[in-house]
Computed example of a mutant assay.
Amino acid sequence: MPMETYLIYLAAVAVFFATPPDTSQLLVISNSIRHGLRRSAYTIVGDLSANCLQMTAAAFGLAAIIATSATAFIWIKWLGVAYLVWIGLQLILSKDHSTEAEANASGGAFHLFKQGFVVSMANPFAVVFFGALFPQFIDPASPVLPQLFILGLTYIVVDGVILLLWGWTGIRAATALKRFSFNIVNKVCGSLMIGAGVLLATRDLQPQR
């Protein structure tokens, strides 16, 4: 892959992320507020793990299958919406005397990883997106797998950095929220999760991260 082609790809990915926060980013912000940036890293790892699977699926041609299967697309999307809204309602409806204990219980590494993984996998259009993006920057005269690896790794690194920056933003928000009760923090985080669910529900025709 020529260096100029790679730099164009890098610029394209950077521009793609120059948007308001999407569902995964809202989840990272919420978990950073509740659990701190270090623990929200498990959510980021979950999100990026799902991206790796989506890239692999795209590389093996499953993008075309998902693109032509409206039923599969709709089921995956709405299961993801329901999961996000369920998380948000749990936070909003939690009681004052139990919020801190619930936050500690929900801050386990596997739980946070699962949230990031499920929310990212709930975007089936990502497979189609990767399937459409990568071929634009692949040189058919050169070995394809190494090029796919470079493109995929670059995307993962950029995505990871962006998620960390959004998590840091969540930490800054948490500092401002410390003057309020923990229950208020839960209400804010729950609202973010429901907002992420609404965002996922209304972006069924737009490629996302």
Rank of each mutant, 00 (worst) to 15 (best):
L10T: 05
A11K: 15
A11T: 10
A12P: 02
V13R: 03
V15D: 01
F17M: 15
T19S: 08
T19F: 12
P21V: 05
P21R: 04
T23Y: 00
L26H: 01
I29T: 08
I29M: 11
S30C: 10
R34D: 01
H35F: 08
G36S: 05
R38F: 12
Y42M: 15
T43Q: 05
I44L: 12
I44G: 02
G46W: 09
G46I: 10
L48I: 12
L48F: 04
A50F: 09
N51D: 10
L62T: 06
A67V: 07
W75Y: 12
I76F: 07
W78R: 07
G80A: 05
V81R: 03
A82R: 03
L84H: 02
V85A: 12
V85R: 03
L89V: 13
L89E: 00
I92Q: 01
L93K: 13
K95E: 10
K95C: 03
D96W: 07
H97Q: 14
S98H: 11
T99A: 15
T99S: 12
E102P: 00
A103N: 09
A103I: 04
N104K: 15
A105G: 01
G108E: 02
G108H: 06
A109Y: 09
A109R: 14
F110S: 08
H111F: 11
L112P: 02
F113I: 06
K114P: 00
V119C: 02
V119L: 00
